[in-house]
Design a protein around this nucleic acid. Structure first.
Lengths: 232, 232
DNA sequence: TTTAAAGCATGAAATATTTCATATAATAAT
DNA sequence: ATTATTATATGAAATATTTCATGCTTTAAA
């Protein structure tokens, strides 16, 4: 990762600043800003590592990331995919200061690392900011339940459909997109073997529901996908 | 459910009051108290219903509950089991005021229903309280990830082991306990068919890992259970 | 440029899981 | 007391999933 000289940064247009400034004075913001480091991450670099003590909130300014964790049997699981602009690490704020999961860049990203102690002090001084963070954590919590719902008690076809719908609606905002996840990563998202994922992709393609050209995916029949997702 | 006359209630010893009073004045607490209703729920009564607009936080004073939801294919899933004292509904506080999941009594419960609007007003006036709630939501979030980890990418035996460990360590604080969940409910917790759950119980019993006497469960070899849970 | 490695794809065998059929015991209803 | 219902249990067939073997294609390395 490359550390940028801060004078080059574009704080003027930063969404995080715009939100936070509603609750902070200029002086308070300067305190945060002094401790903030702007970094660039290359594809597949780790932004936050599961199990590490975490020292910074991360505001993802550009790029897409995956939240993932290893379970006790050593298998990797992708919890979610998120794109900028988004604040990462907020769910850890009031845990035991250990990252619950890893966050890794799926494509080149730029991010601001915000000192956690300074930020916590600000929260204590500022109800509005605390409530804003509470909103963020609540929504993360909601997303994780949605995710859980997609996986639990469904067969692989239903889960693959759910994941394709999620990517289409929440990440790419289109029924045609170029996947930045490998087949292996897709299978870690769907929680099945890579072969099963590929078989399911092939089946969906044979049935005309989707079209696959290597990394490009075209969803032709979203309705069928939604039915498959619903019935499991 | 039976509504109690408030003069009979035991607010003097209530944990919720003890915590909240650290952040509120007597006058503020009285405001909340005036709008609070104390209820008793019988086993299997619904405390909060998935999809309903939610109007009250619920402080569970006694009893044990399950968090559960129906997925799109109509299957019931138990997200978690929780026992008193615990504040229910806090994760909904800053969502769209819709219950994300249902909460149902697993045994007779008593609970205080706290008006959400009054409580929100208090949060806005009080950073300490906001941060306390933030802690609660963060921990709920952490629990749901732990739960997810137990289920994802593991075979049924590993998941059954994980659920037994959870019940033993987090709910009953003993290796011997009388299950308040039916076999059907256990299978909804583990996310498998009821038959598969029963098969797995039988297998564990044959291998001497646990002993089952109808509703009573004796965990004889916790280490083996943990190994099975870890390797999946 | 050639070779090695990684990613993707397919089919078949091995394994896991669900569904179905059936039975028994415990509980509820008549 | 008798009957019906519910909860629990077991085994076998049907289905789903993983694992394995293999091949092709693309990318990275020598």
């Amino acid at each position: 990762m490359i550390q940028e000289i801060k004078t080059n940064s574009n704080c003027q247009t930063c969404l995080f600043k715009q939100v936070v400034m509603q609750y902070l004075t200029n002086e308070q913001f300067e305190l945060i800003y002094d401790k903030t480091i702007q970094l660039k991450f290359k594809k597949s670099e780790t932004i936050l590592k599961q199990g590490n003590k975490f020292t910074h909130l991360v505001f993802l300014d550009s790029g897409t990331v995956k939240f993932h964790l290893e379970n006790e049997s050593g298998k990797n699981i992708i919890l979610s995919v998120a794109k900028s602009p988004i604040l990462l690490g907020s769910s850890n704020l009031f845990n035991e200061e250990i990252n619950l999961f890893s966050i890794t860049a799926l494509e080149d990203c730029s991010a601001c690392m915000i000192d956690i102690n300074i930020f916590k002090t600000m929260i204590h001084q500022n109800c509005g900011l605390a409530i804003k963070i509470l909103e963020l954590v609540s929504n993360l919590y909601k997303d994780s339940i949605t995710n859980f719902l997609n996986l639990a008690n469904k067969q692989v076809a239903g889960r693959v459909a759910g994941t394709l719908i999620y990517l289409s609606e929440k990440i790419y905002n289109s029924t045609e997109f170029t996947l930045i996840l490998s087949r292996k990563e897709m299978s870690e998202f769907v929680c099945c073997s890579m072969e099963n994922l590929i078989h399911t992709f092939s089946r969906f393609q044979k049935e005309g529901i989707i079209k696959i050209e290597e990394k490009k995916i075209f969803i032709h029949e979203m309705n069928k996908l939604k039915t498959i997702n619903r019935v499991g």
